[in-house]
């Protein structure tokens, strides 16, 4: 098992290197002198003196061939130096550290919504396939998958904040500010989870051992609780795990709409004003989150079911 984990870790190294390279490339293709951008922030002036820029270019190895530039950039990154934001003149690391917890919390709450609401509905719909609840949940999930999350967010603001006045509109001053955005963000995951849970439950209930148990006169409720639920919920939870990265990286529009100071808004603002250092850092954070999640899922697959090894070449 150790070997598998090590192998899997080893496999992520080229991916990681490529990601840093892509981030580096981003800086190269974007117009604007990175040395000047850094100096603007450090010296707090719009036009830093020419000599200082030259000095900085030397320090950043910007006068060398690209592979030396990349190496020097990478070693700066590994030392925690990701440059300065062109907009706020703060260090990029500071910006990321401020924004990360917000998005982390937002996507976690979104995930929680799916778990505590979609899964129970899915279970009930699966126990009574083609029942009223099943049809209702199918309808909800069709709409849920078709509505853009930001449009749902707008409707949510209109209903819950303006009309009912029970939730705040925008900004971030406490956990209650995350309810509406998390709900909007979770909608497509919510829809899929609900249907997946329903299907999984219905399938498990069709299995031979469950039927046997029922025919033996065991209480249906007990069987579902004791046996079926456990088996049915595993694929759903693993699916949701794979979706965490998407929630994390997909919060951009929602964060902008609700004025949440998270990674997504940071990234959108950076992209809109070509704030290259911040864009680089965000991209790397998004990618690393993705990689870590995939790693965890692969390892947990392996732990749960050693046969999976074969499909993972």
């Amino acid at each position: 098992m150790k070997r598998f984990i090590l192998l899997r870790l080893f496999q992520t190294i080229p991916v990681l290197i490529s990601i840093t390279f892509i981030a580096f490339l981003l800086m190269m293709v974007t117009p604007g002198d990175p040395a000047e951008i850094n100096l603007r922030a450090m010296m707090n002036t719009e036009s830093p003196p020419k000599e200082a820029i030259e000095q900085m270019r030397m320090e950043m190895d910007l006068d060398k061939p690209w592979y030396i530039q990349y190496y020097s950039w990478l070693s700066r990154v590994l030392h925690g130096d990701l440059g300065y934001s062109y907009q706020t003149r703060k260090s990029t690391v500071e910006e990321i550290l401020r924004a990360f917890p917000v998005t982390f919390l937002l996507s976690s709450i979104a995930m929680l919504f799916s778990i505590i609401i979609a899964i129970p509905i899915g279970i009930l719909a699966g126990i009574h396939p083609n029942g009223k609840l099943d049809h209702l949940s199918r309808g909800i999930s069709i709409i849920g998958l078709s509505i853009p999350d930001f449009f749902l967010g707008i409707l949510g603001i209109l209903i819950f904040s303006i009309t009912l006045k029970i939730l705040p509109v925008a900004g971030y001053k406490g956990p209650e500010y995350l309810i509406l955005p998390a709900f909007a963000l979770s909608i497509s995951l919510f829809a899929v989870t609900m249907r997946l849970m329903r299907t999984s439950m219905a399938e498990v209930l069709e299995q031979e051992y469950i039927r046997t148990a029922i025919s033996k006169g065991l209480d249906r409720g007990t069987i579902i609780r004791r046996h079926a639920l456990k088996n049915a919920i595993v694929p759903v939870l693993t699916y949701m795990g794979t979706q965490y990265g998407w929630l994390f990286g997909g919060a951009m529009i929602i964060e902008s709409l609700f004025a949440l100071p998270g990674m997504g808004r940071l990234f959108v603002d950076a992209a809109a004003s070509r704030d290259i250092m911040v864009m680089q850092a965000c991209i790397m954070v998004f990618a690393i989150i993705f990689i870590i999640i995939n790693l965890c899922i692969d390892i947990s697959y392996y732990l749960l079911d050693p046969r999976m090894r074969d499909t993972h070449e």
Partner: peptide, 11 residues
């Protein structure tokens, strides 16, 4: 696949 597609698109 290591990037959420919207991230790449926006960048």
């Amino acid at each position: 696949l290591a990037f959420p597609s919207m991230v790449v698109t926006l960048a």
